[in-house]
Simulated assay, not measured.
Amino acid sequence: MGVVVIILAAAYGAATGLGLPRAAYRLAVEPGEPWRTHCPDGHPLQGWFGRTPCGRAPHGPGGAGWAPAVVSAAVCAGLAGAGGTRPEAGVFVAVAPVLVLLGIVDLAVHRLPDVLTLPLAALTAALLGVAALLPRAAGTWRGALLGGAALGAAYLVLFLINPAGMGLGDVKLALPLGVALGWYGWGVWAAGAFLGLLYGAVYGLAALLTSRATRGTGFAFGPFMAAGALTGVLLGGFGA
């Protein structure tokens, strides 16, 4: 049964990942600019799910490569392997492709759109609320809500201390990540929160040591936050 669940989750991740390039291309714009409605060759983009139709699109944000599908499939398979048939595993697998999409956009334009982060927080909290009512649930909805509020508040403090080093998009992304981490308790929450900061710090230090960045160079922090939260959820799932 476990292998079947993992295969199904990987298939879901791959299928949704194949549809992410169009949304990523449309959302990867600078702050204040409208979402893209046309591909680089001028053709209108219909809908938000699918590949971008123009030949030059794969070389820009949201290109039609296989990377989003591979990453999404791997993440969903890992979450299914950790959570098994417990109801929260279905929630984490369901929302994982949105994190992949956010990572693509953040890497492209250093931006985490509110149209994704805030609904993701509400959706994750609502789905975990349903999961808490089902048999075999291994976490608590109260812990999830408190975790989201706590991680959001922690990142808000970091933003107020150093606005140049932390964006409001990171603060908003902390809400759904904190909800997911809080589900398994404060130990998992602390591990995921710390690992997100650690991953980002290691990357920043490596960039400095290899002269690929200076002390004032900014980089996309959202993917590291998501990676830390994913690690924490995996630890919590296997532990449960």
Rank of each mutant, 00 (worst) to 15 (best):
D106L: 09
F49N: 02
L79V: 07
G90F: 10
L175P: 01
G60S: 13
G167D: 07
A132H: 01
Y199V: 06
A220M: 10
R26Q: 14
A77F: 09
L123V: 15
I6E: 08
L120V: 11
W186V: 14
T124V: 14
P44G: 02
L120Q: 09
A229E: 08
L18D: 08
L107I: 09
V95P: 13
A193F: 13
R142W: 11
L102K: 02
P223V: 07
L177W: 04
A67V: 14
G143D: 12
P34A: 08
F159P: 00
V91H: 03
G143V: 11
T117M: 09
G62V: 08
A80Y: 01
G182M: 14
V188D: 06
D106A: 06
H110K: 14
A191K: 01
T124P: 12
A96T: 01
A9T: 02
F219Y: 06
L197I: 08
I104Y: 04
A64C: 11
Y199H: 03
A227R: 07
V71D: 00
G81T: 09
G129L: 10
G187R: 12
A206T: 13
A94W: 07
I6Y: 00
V71F: 12
A153I: 12
G236R: 04
P87S: 05
T217K: 01
T231D: 07
L177S: 04
E33L: 14
G237H: 10
L107A: 14
F49R: 13
L18N: 10
W48H: 10
P61D: 07
A121G: 15
A14M: 09
G83T: 04
V71P: 00
R212Q: 12
A28Q: 13
L18I: 10
A73W: 02
V91T: 08
R136V: 06
P21R: 07
P21L: 09
R215D: 01
G148A: 09
W66V: 15
L195I: 07
G47D: 04
V157Y: 00
V70W: 10
A132P: 00
A24I: 04
N162Y: 03
L8C: 14
R56K: 06
L158M: 15
L99M: 12
A229D: 06
P58T: 06
L145H: 02
G222H: 00
A108N: 08
G50I: 11
D41N: 06
